[in-house]
């Protein structure tokens, strides 16, 4: 269910990496405030596996985002939703940091995991 992917310190703030989790590519980000986010790596607009190579950002209301490097579509890192096309979204994965290791969990936006505990796990562990 949970996959250990790398050390927390391997992650450069603001610069994503791709990780293989149960056969699929996940884009993993450590932001400037230390928070962790994991979303699907495939850009739904191009089909290319590139989201991890996007630029992270933050909107005025505190929404953390990533811009796809392909056509610059911007996604909300917390919900996976494309800001300019709300019907399009990336899967969002639970992610937590435990004893210096980053773990990626299940897709919290798929129907099979509506578990409230998992949703809270998507926020950074202290």
């Amino acid at each position: 269910m949970w996959t250990a992917v790398c050390k927390y310190t391997e992650l450069e703030p603001g610069r994503g990496v791709a990780a293989l989790v149960e056969g699929s590519a996940v884009a993993l980000f450590r932001l400037g405030d230390g928070s962790l986010h994991a979303v699907g790596n495939i850009d739904p607009f191009s089909g290319a596996s590139v989201i991890s190579r996007g630029i992270t950002g933050m909107r005025g209301d505190g929404t953390a985002t990533v811009a796809s490097p392909m056509y610059k579509d911007i996604f909300d890192l917390a919900t996976g939703v494309a800001l300019d096309a709300p019907e399009v979204r990336l899967p969002v994965f639970a992610v937590r940091r435990h004893r210096g290791v980053v773990w990626v969990g299940p897709d919290v936006t798929s129907g099979s995991a509506p578990d409230a505990e998992l949703l809270t796990a998507a926020t950074p562990a202290v």
Partner: peptide, 19 residues
Amino acid sequence: AKAPASAKEVNDGCDVCKP
């Protein structure tokens, strides 16, 4: 300048200002 709408600190730029 516009103040952020929430108390959360805006500590990151965006895909316009960063590059």
